[in-house]
Simulated scan of single mutants.
Amino acid sequence: MKKLVGYITTSFPDNNFTIDLSLAMGEAGVDTLELGIPFSDPVADGPVIEKANLLSLQHGFKMKDLFEISKVIAPKIDTLWMGYMNSFYHQGMENIVQKAKSLGVNGAIIPDLPYEEALAFTDIFAKNNQALISFVAPTDSKQRIQTVVKEAQKFIYLVAYAGITGSGKSEDLSEVISNTRAFSNTPIYIGFGVDEKSAKAKAVGVDGVIVGSAFVKHLLDESLNHNEKIKRITQLAKEIKEKINE
């Protein structure tokens, strides 16, 4: 069965809501939860996630909120921290990776950490049994893919197109998928622009999908109360999970 990874913005609108939503998403079929660490300049993210990031920061998000939420949810749903290098750097990479392990979190997704720079932290992640997710893009050469995925853990994050999340572009990924499989047996999950309309097509040839903006847009819908937001997002998760496994 193909897997569903769901991204949400931590502490938006508050910690208790994030906990309730996370657990509900797990019950709805989300296999792995990306807890997004709010950041003022989320360069890989589109306007939907960027807005949620800024609102969470305006509401007073601190890293302790991430830790408090993770302590509750990580034992119940496979959890990764998704954030930008600045957030990890200020905590100290060894400290934050050890903290993740202690809370039951299983790894990190850091989109602005290039492969060459990530090598400096490989041992820290390995000794704490944490996965540092590898990225592959359509613009990567076969040689580059071989280098990047040779020690990939948990899953390989295939970026669906060059650009930012949520823009819904489409590219022929058959070659990059073939090249990735030639050098790694690690599952390939596709992200960027995946929603209920595109999920089935994007899931072809890969092992899972990563959905962010399609969920977060419901977090931003001020016409919905908390329970309605959770209902909308969990219904969407169920729909996408069904579609990718048809």
Rank of each mutant, 00 (worst) to 15 (best):
T9F: 07
P13H: 09
D14H: 12
L21E: 06
E27K: 15
A28D: 09
A28R: 10
G29L: 00
V30N: 15
V30M: 13
D31I: 05
G36N: 04
V43L: 13
V43Q: 05
V43G: 05
L54S: 13
L55Y: 02
L57N: 04
Q58F: 03
H59C: 07
H59L: 04
F61D: 06
K62R: 09
A74E: 01
N86C: 03
H90T: 12
G92R: 00
V97G: 08
S102D: 15
I110C: 05
L113R: 00
Y115G: 06
T122H: 12
D123Q: 08
I124N: 11
F125W: 07
N128R: 09
N129T: 03
N129V: 02
S134G: 04
D140Y: 15
Q146F: 00
V149G: 13
F155I: 02
L158C: 07
L158H: 13
L158E: 04
Y161G: 07
I164E: 11
T165Q: 06
G166Q: 02
G168L: 03
G168Q: 03
S170Y: 10
L173E: 07
S174N: 08
E175P: 07
V176Y: 04
I177E: 10
S178A: 10
N179K: 09
F183Q: 11
N185G: 11
T186H: 10
F192W: 08
G193R: 06
S198I: 01
A199L: 05
K200Q: 15
G208R: 01
V209I: 05
V211H: 08
F215C: 02
F215V: 01
V216D: 03
L219F: 04
D221R: 04
S223Q: 10
N225V: 01
I233Q: 06
I233N: 14
A237F: 07
